[in-house]
Design a protein around this nucleic acid. Structure first.
Length: 728
DNA sequence: GCGTATCGCGTTTTT
DNA sequence: CGCGATACGC
């Protein structure tokens, strides 16, 4: 069974059996049916393949590529599908318009936006920027945040800018879901209004505005509607359960002329309601479009039957059942394994050990993935894998352009492209010494009111403490605006100014951040002009990590959300503990059900082997360890669908012996196991990052305090810190 | 007294 | 990493 696994990766792409499947009645219908088509397809049933064949079929029939529109939720998904369609036809699919809702919206708005009263110049802001604006507004409107009841930023943001809320009065949303905030109703409403006018004034647009304006364009601008709708004759939408109401409207309006629309989705995989997705869109589809052909795909071509039995059992328990029982013809006798570790470290070491075993037995690392609910759940495992020398790629969590130093650099670029971008101005001023939030905001509002922000800046009456800083800034901008600089050149100019500040602001860890900046340099250099760089990177930020170099075997660690639509031979789901999954803030009801579907999505990623893991002890808020049970979603499973792979009691000593047998080719060198007895107070030690230091204090089992020459006092744990004793 | 610097602590998920 | 609370400086 395992030796087949090596070949299967290549075969899923263009396996001959796909052709056979295509001849089956279901796929025949999918390919050729005219008019509206709704495909309800379970996990692993070949949703993507469906669309690939449809595209190939249309092109084969002589439909001009530029009349086909393929809408997805990630850019990668669209590229992948077009690539596969091209493989089928033995030619390229260039000309087919494929992309995310947001990128298509951006394209259309830049071309036709003037019908709605804005031209081609607007800046797209991402969620992180929106948070910044909300903060600015909060402070300028005098919200103190002292009241604990006041909504957290994220909740607030979802309320004032979330797409759901645009189709429903905000008052209703607050009444239904956030009734404890009703005292703040007026505050929130005024914040929402200010947010809207702030964006309008400064030529900013966020993710949701892109969609709203696309819809407006189709509804309110007859000439644009005419041009756009006559351009496309066939529309396809992937992951339809992830669309929100606005996107559903857009699909409806886009298809009004030709009625050739095909959507594909799975209601059991709806995990994006927090950003406005509404899986009832699927149920409504046949009502919206007359004479819809509904096609159900229930055979699973991905997982073995034991895995499917477990995943079927997960949705069996959901409150709203859409009785859909997937079946598979793929043989396999590996029952999903359940593992409860004593604590997070035991869980991590179990996973690492298993991965090591699998790898040695011949499963390539890139066919293995570890999935989890939230970004930080994998910290312990990352340390463990690092120690063992495994190369891994983490997906989800912070994107490259979301870290502070990146946003710093980008803000210079964005101000250049859009001098009304107050948020970026603010960020730039905050970097100056002796300038804090208040002063930065003062400068920003003054100069943004002027027509020419740059000269206004030069003439700004600066206080002595930071006058020099402003002068340097003025110089910088005159250089940047000088010639028609390419993005690459602009980066160099900015870095000349920013580098000294950068080292000052992030003096603790700037080497790591510097690598990111190097990457940014490469990315910017590949763009022709600044505007297109800004548009593309804010809509779809490049991943952290070195994507460009081919890195061979690499394990994937990913949040479940970022793993959607993908598959691996072996999947580990970790952190399946009570309070962690479902997330502790999830209340029984809709949110609870969504968490369950999330678990379903995670488990259905596995083709051959599935491991479900949880720690029995976790750090709670007060720094104390708390015993926890397994996730309620695990408890409710039928005992027969998984096998308990035993539990390790308290890890007597965290065995480093397992580490020692690693091959020398791995990148971290084996380091000796040090124990606390090896140190005395006053020992001189060397740390790869903090440099040299002296031991100040030995604390109980395996931690010690070290005074580093350049980085101050740190408390380190022997199991994690890579210490070398220089002199004892 | 206003504003800025510093420290400590708790983190949902994202186009 | 960003937030809040607290401490210092003009």
């Amino acid at each position: 069974m395992l030796n087949n696994s090596l070949e299967s990766q290549n075969q899923t792409r263009q396996s001959p059996s796909i052709k056979d499947q295509l001849n089956s009645p279901q796929y025949e219908a999918v390919r050729t049916t005219e008019g509206p088509v709704l495909v309800i397809a379970g996990a692993g049933s070949g949703k993507t393949r469906t669309l690939v064949y449809r595209v190939a079929h249309l092109l084969n029939e002589g439909v001009a590529p530029e009349r086909i529109l393929l809408l997805t939720f990630t850019r990668k998904a669209a590229q992948e599908m077009l690539w596969r369609a091209g493989q089928l036809l033995n030619e390229s699919c260039s000309g087919v318009v494929g992309g995310t809702f947001h990128s298509i919206a951006n394209m259309l708005l830049r071309r036709h936006g003037n019908y709605l009263g804005f031209g081609s110049s607007f800046t797209i802001i991402d969620r992180a920027d929106a948070e910044g604006i909300v903060n600015l507004l909060k402070s300028s409107l005098g919200f103190t945040g002292k009241d604990k009841q006041f909504p957290t930023k994220r909740v607030l943001l979802n309320m004032i800018s979330g797409s759901v809320n645009k189709s429903k009065p905000l008052e209703d949303i607050i009444f239904e879901h956030y009734s404890h905030l009703s005292d703040h109703l007026d505050d929130i409403l005024s914040l929402r209004d200010h947010y809207a006018s702030f964006k309008m004034d400064h030529g900013l647009m966020d993710y949701d505005d892109l969609l709203v304006n696309w819809k407006r364009l189709l509804e309110e601008a007859p000439e644009a509607r005419q041009q756009i709708s006559s351009r496309f004759s066939h529309i396809m939408v992937d992951e339809y359960q992830d669309t929100n109401l606005i996107q559903a409207d857009i699909v409806r309006l886009m298809a009004a002329e030709h009625n050739n629309v095909m959507v594909v989705g799975d209601d059991s995989q709806s995990i994006y309601s927090f950003r406005g997705a509404d899986f009832y869109n699927i149920m409504r589809f046949p009502k919206t479009f007359e004479d819809t052909t509904v096609i159900k795909l229930e055979e699973n071509y991905r997982s073995t039957q034991p895995i499917l039995s477990l995943t079927n059992d997960i949705i069996r328990n959901s409150a709203e059942k859409y009785t859909k029982t997937l079946f598979s013809n793929i043989e396999g006798d590996f029952l999903p394994q359940l593992y409860g570790g004593f604590d997070e470290r035991a869980e991590a070491s179990f996973v690492a050990k298993k991965i090591d075993e699998l790898h040695k037995a011949g499963t390539p690392l890139e066919h293995i993935a570890v999935l989890f609910r939230s970004g930080f759940h994998s910290y312990k495992l990352e340390v463990e894998l690092g120690n063992l020398g495994f190369d891994f790629e983490k997906r989800g969590g912070l994107k490259l352009t979301e870290s502070a130093h990146m946003k710093d650099v980008l803000s210079f670029m964005r101000v250049l492209a859009n001098p009304h971008d107050t948020l970026s101005w603010n960020r730039i001023f905050l970097q100056l010494d002796k300038v804090g939030p208040k002063t930065a905001q003062k400068i920003t509002t003054t100069i943004a009111a002027q027509d020419d922000a740059f000269t206004a800046l030069a003439e700004y009456p600066a206080a002595p403490a930071w006058k020099k800083g402003v002068q340097k800034l003025t110089k910088l901008f005159s250089r940047m605006r000088g010639r028609n600089n390419t993005p690459g050149a602009l980066f160099e100019i900015v870095m000349e100014y920013y580098e000294p500040l950068f080292q000052q602001i992030y003096r603790d860890d700037y080497p790591k951040r510097q690598k990111d900046l190097e990457q940014l340099k490469g990315i910017m250099a590949s763009y022709e002009d600044l505007q297109s760089f800004i548009d593309e990177t804010t809509l779809d930020p490049p991943d952290t990590g070195t994507e460009n170099d081919y890195v061979g075997e690499r394990l994937i660690l990913s949040t479940i959300h970022s793993a959607k639509g993908l598959e691996w031979d072996v999947v580990f789901v970790i952190g399946l503990a009570d309070g962690r999954f479902p997330h502790s803030a999830a209340i029984v009801g809709d949110q609870w059900e969504e968490e369950r579907r999330l678990f379903y999505v995670a488990s259905t990623r596995a083709k051959k082997k599935l491991y479900l893991c949880y720690p029995k002890e976790m750090m709670s808020s007060d720094r104390r360890f708390k015993r926890v049970g397994m996730s309620p979603f695990l408890k409710e499973l039928k005992p027969g669908v998984y096998q308990n792979s035993g539990e390790i009691s308290r890890p007597v000593s965290f065995s480093r012996a397992e580490v020692d047998h690693q091959p020398a080719s791995r990148k971290t060198s084996t380091r000796q196991k040090l124990s606390i007895e090896d140190f005395t107070i006053g020992s001189k030690v060397e740390h790869p990052f903090f440099g040299s230091g002296k031991v100040k204090k030995l604390s109980k089992p395996r931690t010690l305090d070290i005074q580093f020459d350049r980085h101050g006092l740190k408390t380190l744990h022997l199991d994690y810190a890579k210490l070398k004793i220089i002199k004892s």
